[in-house]
């Protein structure tokens, strides 16, 4: 039953571009996959390991800038720029992690905001990287997989974004069942208690942020190839860091599917209000986000996925009670 349902969902997702040929529905799905992947990456560090980062745009931007600069300066395919960006993001995450992991809780979150602002300011002032004007990804025609550019149809972008999401979920699933998954959760619950039973807390946090940063950077490269223009305002803003965390929190942190669920709710909302209200409704989606987040925080802190779990539990108890009374 559960397997059949999963198979239907997978088939529906795979067949979606064949049924919907127009750009907009495909675009919405691509954004769901991208934000789902980014929130899943964030979830590794924040949801499982408990380190609430509000600076993940740093890794997203590094992914976008690395591949774009490599295309412009070395004519390198983004397929190589993508892992290069991920590697650089890992390196930067280790440097950032060294001082900020000494801080706990709110102080850690605040420090990550500060680091994010510093990196954005650097890129605004770095003329070799386009400065505040940003960078265009050189247009290459005709469409080709090698150049990761598609001007005629969004279908290939769709499957690449889906692949990114699948990769992020796969990594998370694997982590969840390995030693690291348990140890990350122990650090989230009480890092001193974890240290007292032999957990090298600092090292584990560094592993968590490395995985998280690498996956986030992949999304950054994809974004650059999707919109073909990047600037510090669009890939390094605090608002992006916050949005990534909102998606995960709304869906449910510390669970495999929560962040995807959050993206599936928030992205259509954002794209929908943008289309329906245009310029007049600017930021209305943020008002709705805010209201949703408050409702979730008050009534279901474990996120929408917690609601689903509760519903399932209630139903199981109800059927159990029904069986007991009929017996």
């Amino acid at each position: 039953m559960k397997r059949a349902l999963a198979a239907i969902v997978v088939l529906a997702v795979l067949a979606f571009p064949l049924v919907f040929a127009r750009p907009f529905p495909r675009h919405v799905m691509i954004m769901i996959f991208l934000y789902g992947a980014l929130a899943t990456a964030w979830n590794v560090l924040a949801g499982y390991c408990g380190q609430i980062s509000l600076g993940h745009a740093v890794y997203f931007g590094i992914g976008a800038y690395t591949s774009t600069l490599l295309i412009r300066e070395a004519a390198l395919t983004p397929w190589l720029g993508m892992p290069a960006g991920a590697a650089l993001a890992v390196l930067v995450s280790q440097v950032i992690g060294y001082p900020v992991f000494r801080l706990r809780g709110h102080y850690f979150a605040i420090a990550t905001i500060g680091v994010g602002e510093i990196v954005q300011t650097l890129f605004i002032n770095w003329d070799w990287a386009g400065g505040a004007r940003g960078l265009f990804v050189p247009i290459k025609r005709p469409d080709s997989l090698l150049n990761l550019q598609f001007h005629e149809s969004k279908a290939v972008y769709y499957y690449i974004a889906l692949g990114l999401l699948a990769l992020a979920l796969g990594v998370t699933h694997w982590l969840e069942r390995s030693r690291r998954g348990y140890v990350f959760r122990a650090i989230r619950e009480d890092q001193d208690a974890a240290a007292s039973v032999g957990v090298h807390v600092a090292r584990e946090k560094h592993v968590a942020i490395a995985v998280s940063a690498a996956l986030t950077a992949l999304g950054g490269t994809f974004w650059a190839q999707y919109v073909l223009f990047i600037d510090p305002e669009s890939v390094f803003p605090l608002s992006l860091s916050i949005l990534i965390s909102l998606v995960a929190v709304l869906g449910g942190v510390g669970s495999l599917w929560g962040p995807v669920l959050g993206a599936a709710i928030l992205v259509p909302l954002s794209e929908g209000t943008r289309v329906l209200l245009g310029g007049t409704g600017k930021a209305l989606d943020l008002v709705i986000y805010g209201a949703l987040i408050m409702l979730i925080a008050v009534f279901q802190p474990s996120g929408v996925i917690g609601l689903a779990r509760r519903f399932r539990r209630d139903r199981r108890q109800a059927t159990g009670a029904a069986q007991a009374s009929s017996a």
Binding site: Y182, V183, R185, E189, D190, D192, A193, A194, V197, G198
Partner: peptide, 17 residues
């Protein structure tokens, strides 16, 4: 200082790791 959000078994597994 138990790991509140984890089961009893999972708590002890952290020690065993």
């Amino acid at each position: 200082r138990p790991f509140h959000g984890m089961t009893t078994l999972e708590n002890v597994m952290i020690g065993a790791f």
